[in-house]
């Protein structure tokens, strides 16, 4: 289980990185933390001609609170974000969901932007980005940038709006809004596994942005009104996701979780597991 051969580029600046992308284009893969890509390369499910390693680009390593959003550079790791002192104040949904992302060891190298670029439909960070209505910032030649809303960025399974000559330079998560409540809940087979169903909610005074991961081919967000019949809205949502059976969970189970876990999440009820606190066991 060894990767096929590839040319390796390690640019020092974003400009340099983009130039390489323009030169090598579609046959290049960008690697930052490599926590998804390296496994795929080892299995030879991908045999790119070139690897463009952006992990050493210092100018892309930052967490900055700006006007209304938290900007996270493309070389910033998940661990660095989790250790950011103001995370719970700035973007509480991230503080809730980041511990669900992989493990301590993979968060040490895995980047925030990398997870979003990979667009795994079960991953937590794309779900949060879409739910909060964040943005992805892409840059191409001569400093031209595009900003794409999180909801539009994910185009399907492992597929995004990024063009081959574009580099994701940062993602932007909107800062906590006053009087909003943020909640996250996930069911996975084991701790740290890909979600069977992950739910994220940004509960405002009138509206709820409700995101579902792990079910459709991308994170799906619906705006629910607090005046709606939530049970009915969740049922419509559950059925609209084209849930699939796989080896670990049935489609009906996934729909059940969207409806029932969704209802409890919105109502702020703890699950029985949390309430019973049966772990660590006696």
């Amino acid at each position: 289980m060894k990767p096929a051969a590839f040319d390796y580029y390690r640019p020092r600046t974003r400009r340099e990185a983009i130039e390489v992308l323009i030169e090598v284009g579609e046959d290049a893969r960008i690697v930052a933390g490599g926590q998804s890509l390296m496994a795929v390369l080892n299995m030879r499910l991908s045999q790119p001609r070139a690897l463009v390693d952006i992990a050493a680009i210092d100018e892309l390593r930052y967490i900055e609170r700006r006007d209304g959003y938290l900007a996270i550079g493309a070389a910033t790791t998940q661990a660095e974000l989790l250790e950011y002192d103001f995370l719970a104040d700035d973007v509480p949904l991230l503080a809730e969901s980041l511990p669900w992302v992989g493990h301590f060891q993979t968060r040490n190298r895995g980047t925030v932007c990398g997870s979003i670029a990979h667009a795994d439909p079960s991953a937590e960070l794309p779900l949060c980005l879409a739910t909060l209505g964040g943005e992805v910032v892409l840059e191409t030649r001569r400093g031209r940038t595009r900003r794409i809303a999180g909801g539009d960025f994910f185009q399907g399974i492992l597929t995004t709006e990024r063009r081959p000559d574009e580099l994701i330079t940062e993602v932007r998560f909107p800062l906590k809004q006053e009087h909003h409540i943020y909640r996250f809940q996930e069911v996975a087979m084991r701790h740290g596994d890909f979600a069977i169903v992950a739910l994220a909610a940004d509960i405002g005074e009138r509206e709820i942005q409700f995101g579902v991961g792990g079910v459709a081919d991308r994170p799906i967000v619906r705006c629910l009104s607090r005046d709606d019949d939530l049970a009915e809205a969740l049922n419509v949502l559950a059925w609209s996701l084209d849930a699939q059976n796989d080896a670990h969970a049935s489609a009906a189970y996934r729909r059940h979780l969207v409806r029932e876990m969704g209802r409890r999440l919105l109502a702020g009820e703890t699950t029985e597991e949390e309430a019973a606190d049966v772990y660590p066991s006696r």
Partner: peptide, 27 residues
């Protein structure tokens, strides 16, 4: 959870596709 019985509300008209299988297994 399937053994406990999942009572599904009906699929709303025009939403999603029919999924006949109810058990996990994939294929």
């Amino acid at each position: 959870r399937t053994l406990m019985g999942i009572e599904e509300p009906p699929r709303p008209e025009g939403v999603g596709e029919d999924s006949t299988e109810t058990t996990a297994g994939g294929g």
